Amino acid sequence: MISKLENNEIKIEVDTAGAQLQKLILKKDNKNYLWHGNSEYWGRRAPVLFPIVGRLKDDRYFYDGQKYKMTQHGFARDKEFELVEQSRNHLTYAIEESEATLEKYPFRFRLEIKYTIKGNSLFVAYRVVNQDHQEIYFSVGAHPAFYWPLTEGESKEDYYLEFEKKENADKYLLESGLLNHQTEKVLTDSKILELQPDTFKEDALVFKNLKSEKVTLKSRKSDREVEVEFKGFPFLGIWSQSAEAPFICIEPWQGIADSVDSSGKIEQKEGIRKLKAGKEFECTHTITIR
């Protein structure tokens, strides 16, 4: 079921399937900034990542002596959410554990995704509630895809990413979706990351603990831009499916993929969040379109 929100500046559409954002439109030019999900390249638009971010080694993990199977980015993106609250400026979606999730993830939880519009910004808030009698382990993250280029007649080479602060940043390299303990310098005392069609030929750019809390997709030929604020998110992924794919994903993460030599124990997983019984975790990222 699709629900819509709009104010004087933007419009959004969200589906109960995966609580996934479907459209993000700037009203002044009726431009949709969000990738439309053409399966020729990538059939998703802005999936919710939970209870893991990235890939597990051998697509499995261990907890309390038991082995559990889970595919990349977890199961939330494929679940039907319930629209539990709606107002003039926000939509809130929720899922809880079920027999099906307990087979993959042996914890009782509630996950809420709240979309709020204000001016030309969309605030996406995540709330995880531990409904279990024990500590739970989880990651949560975002995976929004934006058109690249944003304007017809432009090329991918016209675009760049501008970080909020000058960075000396390495990307953490992936091998079949797993971190391989190698890095490669991407930024040296610079805010600007140039983009090329082959930028993602070796998979996503994965960053840890950047100084910046914002990054903006910009063009040298037009003034359309997308800013993603990821304050409080320790990891950031940037990805596109191929040199030909006309989109780019800017992904705030509260978790990260396994390493090639991971033990598989969820308690030891890098970036995993731990939440005591009865406690809640919240985080928010913001998308601003201009």
Rank of each mutant, 00 (worst) to 15 (best):
Y126R: 09
P106E: 05
E99V: 11
A100K: 14
H73S: 05
S121P: 01
I117G: 10
M70Y: 02
G74L: 02
L111N: 03
Q86I: 11
K114V: 00
L102C: 02
I113F: 01
R108I: 02
A100Y: 10
A76C: 03
S87L: 01
N89A: 07
Q72L: 04
D78K: 12
R77G: 06
S121M: 01
F109Y: 14
I95W: 02
E103P: 00
R108F: 07
S87G: 06
L91R: 09
L83C: 06
K118N: 13
Y115D: 04
E85R: 14
F109H: 06
E99I: 10
N120G: 05
L111W: 00
Q72V: 10
E80C: 04
I117A: 06
T92G: 03
G74T: 04
L102Q: 13
F123N: 13
S121F: 02
L122Q: 08
Q86K: 15
F107C: 12
K118G: 05
A100M: 07
A100H: 10
K104P: 02
S87Q: 01
E96S: 14
R88H: 12
H90P: 00
P106I: 08
E97I: 02
E103D: 10
Y105T: 01
E82T: 15
E80T: 10
R108K: 15
H73T: 10
I95Y: 01
E99N: 14
R77C: 07
T101K: 04
E103Y: 06
R127C: 11
T71L: 07
E99A: 10
A76T: 03
Q86D: 00
T116A: 06
L91G: 03
Y115G: 12
P106T: 11
S87R: 05
T116F: 05
R127F: 11
E82V: 12
A125D: 14
T92M: 04
E97D: 15
V84T: 13
L122P: 09
H90D: 07
R110S: 13
R88V: 08
R127K: 15
T116Q: 13
T71F: 11
E97Q: 14
E97G: 10
E99C: 08
S87F: 03
T101D: 07
E82D: 14
I117S: 11
R127H: 12
G74S: 09
E82W: 00
L102S: 05
K79Y: 03
F75D: 09
V124N: 12
E112W: 01
